[in-house]
Amino acid sequence: MVRELSKSTDIIYPDSDGQPMADNTKQFRWIVVIKENLELLFADNPDVFVAGDLLWYPVEGNNRIRRAPDAMVVFGRPKGDRGSYKQWEEDHIAPQVVFEILSPGNRVSEMIQKQAFYDYHGVEEYYVYDPDEVDLAGMIRGEGRLDPIEDIQGWVSPRLGIRFQLEEETLKIFTPTGDPFLGFIELDRRRQEAEAERDRQRQRAETAEEEHQRERQRAETAEAEHQRERQRAETAEAERQRERQRAETAEAQLKAMEQRLRELGLDES
C-alpha cells in the first residue's frame, strides 16, 4: 500500500496537453466571449470558479484521463489561479457546466469521446456551439446521464441562468438580467463608458457639495449680518432709552428749579 501511494505521488500532471486553445480566430473569439462573460456573471460570488482551456484531471493517479474544455464552470470551488483542475484537490467536485466551440478541425470521433468523458465524470450541462454553421446543441443530466436538450432555442441554463438565442447569423447569449454576452472590444467600450459616467456623477456630486458649501456660507454670512443688524437695533434702542432718560432727567430738573424759584418768590409769573 505504501509503495502504491509513492507511485501515485510521483505522477506528473502536465498543465498543457500540447494542443492549441483554438484552431482559428472565430473559435478563439467565442471561447473568450463565453469564458469572460461567465467570469463577469459570477464576479461577486467567491465560490464559483470559471476557466477556459484548463486541463481537468478527474482521477487521481492517472494523468492520461483528462480533458481541457473550452470553458467550464465549477460551483462550490473558490476563484484563483490553477495550472490544472485536479478534482481530488477540489473537494472531488466535478465541473457542472462545460462548453465546447467547434472548429473545422474537430472530428466526429473526438466530439463523441468528449461527450462520453463529460457524461461519465458527472458534468450536469454540456453545450456545443458551431460558429460556422450557427448551430448549438446541448445536453443536460437526467436519470444519471446526459440527455439531449430537444429544443435549444430560448433554452435557459438551470445552473447558469443564461439564455441561448439562435439567430440567422450568430448565437446570442443573455444573462439572467437580459444583458447580452459581449465581445472584448464592446466590454471595454462599456467599461470606459461606465467609468466616464462614474466620473461625471462624481463631478456632479462634488459640484453639488461645493454649491451646498457656498449656500451654507451665504446663510452663515446672512445670519452674521442679521446678528449685526439686531445688535445695531439693540444699540439704537439702548441709545433711544438713554436719550429719553436724559430728557426725563432734564425735565425733572427744570421742574425742580421752577419750584425753587416760586418758593423764593422769584417766579415771574
Score class of each variant (00 low, 15 high):
18 G>I: 05
235 T>W: 05
67 R>N: 08
201 Q>W: 03
264 L>W: 14
158 P>C: 13
199 D>K: 01
230 R>A: 11
30 W>S: 10
99 F>H: 03
47 D>R: 02
3 R>S: 12
65 I>M: 06
69 P>A: 04
14 P>T: 00
200 R>D: 09
94 A>T: 14
2 V>M: 13
20 P>A: 14
80 G>E: 03
219 A>N: 12
222 A>T: 06
103 S>R: 01
70 D>S: 08
54 L>K: 02
240 R>C: 07
26 K>C: 08
226 H>N: 11
144 G>Y: 08
162 I>Q: 06
86 K>T: 08
103 S>W: 06
88 W>I: 06
84 S>T: 09
98 V>M: 10
57 Y>P: 07
98 V>A: 07
224 A>S: 15
176 P>M: 02
204 R>C: 12
195 E>L: 15
45 N>G: 00
118 Y>N: 05
259 Q>C: 09
52 G>Q: 00
226 H>G: 14
87 Q>D: 07
101 I>Y: 07
94 A>W: 12
203 Q>C: 05
146 L>K: 01
220 E>N: 15
90 E>K: 10
176 P>G: 06
19 Q>D: 13
236 A>K: 07
243 E>L: 07
70 D>F: 10
35 K>Q: 05
166 L>W: 04
164 F>E: 07
136 L>V: 05
245 Q>P: 06
183 G>W: 13
147 D>Q: 09
168 E>K: 15
139 M>T: 03
141 R>F: 15
244 R>Q: 10
73 V>K: 04
179 D>G: 01
135 D>G: 03
14 P>D: 01
57 Y>A: 11
134 V>C: 12
40 L>M: 00
166 L>E: 13
263 E>S: 06
217 Q>E: 15
115 Q>I: 01
136 L>M: 03
97 V>W: 09
239 E>V: 03
170 T>K: 11
179 D>Q: 00
112 I>R: 00
253 Q>K: 11
32 V>Q: 00
238 A>H: 09
152 I>R: 06
124 E>F: 14
240 R>I: 09
112 I>Q: 01
228 R>I: 14
180 P>I: 01
147 D>S: 09
11 I>P: 09
172 K>R: 12
56 W>Q: 06
57 Y>Q: 12
43 A>V: 05
117 F>V: 04
263 E>M: 03
223 E>C: 15
103 S>L: 02
161 G>T: 02
